[in-house]
Design a binder for these strands. Structure first.
Lengths: 256, 256
DNA sequence: GCACTTACGTGCGCCGTCGAACAGATGCGT
DNA sequence: ACGCATCTGTTCGACGGCGCACGTAAGTGC
């Protein structure tokens, strides 16, 4: 049976806190393409995926859209509950079907106001999300589609059990904010290089190391930053560490 | 004399909390181009700008970079202190010189752990930052440079007292992540349309309404979202509102 | 095994951005 | 008022991505 603590946030929770919350979790199966959260709607649950992947997508009024980040077993869906903003314009859709556990919004708000471990870990994931989004901005600007595809595939792979990503080129195009044909071309290159194998909605990654080498450095950077953030929090049992540091004061001298 | 409560977060703070903190603020003048925070360094202060604007910039190892968001009197610089991540890969540079007030990191951490009004308002601004970044992603992907320039100018203008932005095209190019020539061309168009007037590092906005019409809808969307977030928080005196809502449960039915 | 839906592959012209090199203009210091 | 560094404007070929149209292949259901 699916265990909530396959989710990294719940796994990092001190046993006492987990025991306190465990009765409130509800198990849900997320089917691919499902809309977990509509733009502007209030959150009713926070979702802690174990095997599912949820995509955060922003679409503006003109229909232009792009994926902002993806959340799997590494985090939770429903950051506005943690930050206090109640809702968000982001849409959350199930990118890869699987299992998740959810907590009612009331419970999340209660935890937020009490400021316990769950809140602390969730805030940390909020920062990891910001890092993901930030690198997406740079990556979008400066990197070619095939490298972005590598990054996307690797990010997905990190949240999945095997070496296979089940998704059509159409969906990837939507996520990356490019044309479907551009994905076809990029995927074709990667396949020609023997890195992946594509067959009708199923990508098998043959050479993960090669894919990493082919990806832009954004992938490694995001991963490093997320690891740093997570480890810093998971390690700390007290929430008020890491404040006092004895580095030299930053100067306010203009650059160049 | 510069008043800390020109900053919107400090202004929204209940008087009792402000009175408690006021002695700990230090006034600083930020000069254009100064590096407020180097990537990866721990934060020593949180900055609350009043008339200055600070740019959040991410540069990867290859030198590719882009502005993620800008913070002025509407927020604070040092979100990682609020989220508990201690540091960040983002660089913070002074985009427009001016005044700010700062709090030592220790004080911010204390406030974070106590979970008072300052923390609540800061978290809300964190979500506003995410919104800014999110729309940047979509905007980068789908909108032409001249429209992005409009958005950038309007965002700056909202944080400045007059109708003038003092910045070279070189700097704007760096912020938008495009070539300097692209900015020249875009600015030329706007000038030809009578919206702005450009003269050696000083942009005067003649027709703000026209500029808004010319900008992509991302500007309005970001502004609406930030206003929503801020008002929701500023209005609430109790931190545990807005959790229980009686909307229909979201279905988990796949789309299309 | 059949037609049929769905997904992938390919060709074409168009346009916005890049990269680099260079010309012109403005404002500052002395 | 002059020289000069700095900022702005312009040109050119190259290229990546877009939008469209169409062809092909792989699964699905009867």
């Amino acid at each position: 049976m699916d265990d909530p603590r396959q989710n990294q946030i719940l796994a990092a929770l001190p046993d006492r806190d987990y025991a306190r919350l465990v009765g409130e979790f509800e198990h849900v199966t997320l089917v691919p393409g499902a809309l977990l959260h509509a733009p502007g709607a209030p959150f009713e649950f926070a979702y802690f995926p174990t095997t599912a992947i949820v995509a955060l997508i922003l679409a503006n009024d003109s229909g232009a859209s792009a994926e902002l980040a993806m959340t799997g077993k590494d985090g939770l869906v429903g950051i506005p509950l943690v930050l206090g903003g109640v809702s968000t314009r982001f849409a959350m859709t199930v990118q890869s079907g699987g299992e998740a556990w959810r907590l009612p919004a009331e419970v999340m708000c209660r935890e937020r106001d009490q400021g316990g471990s769950l809140q602390r870990l969730s805030l940390c994931y909020a920062q990891a999300l910001m890092a993901q989004m930030a690198y997406s901005i740079v990556c979008n600007r400066h990197h070619l589609v095939d490298r972005q595809l590598c990054r996307w595939l690797l990010s997905s792979l990190d949240l999945l059990p095997g070496n296979q990503v089940d998704v059509t080129q159409e969906v990837i195009a939507h996520m990356l904010g490019v044309r479907r044909e551009a994905v076809t071309e990029a995927a074709g290159k990667l396949q020609a290089e023997g890195l992946i194998r594509y067959r009708r909605g199923h990508i098998t990654v043959n050479d993960r190391a090669g894919l990493e080498a082919r990806a832009c450095e954004c992938y490694r950077a995001v991963r490093a930053e997320c690891d740093r953030l997570f480890e810093a929090q998971a390690a700390s049992k007290c929430s008020s560490i890491n404040c006092t540091l004895d580095t030299p004061r930053n100067s306010l001298i203009p650059r160049r």
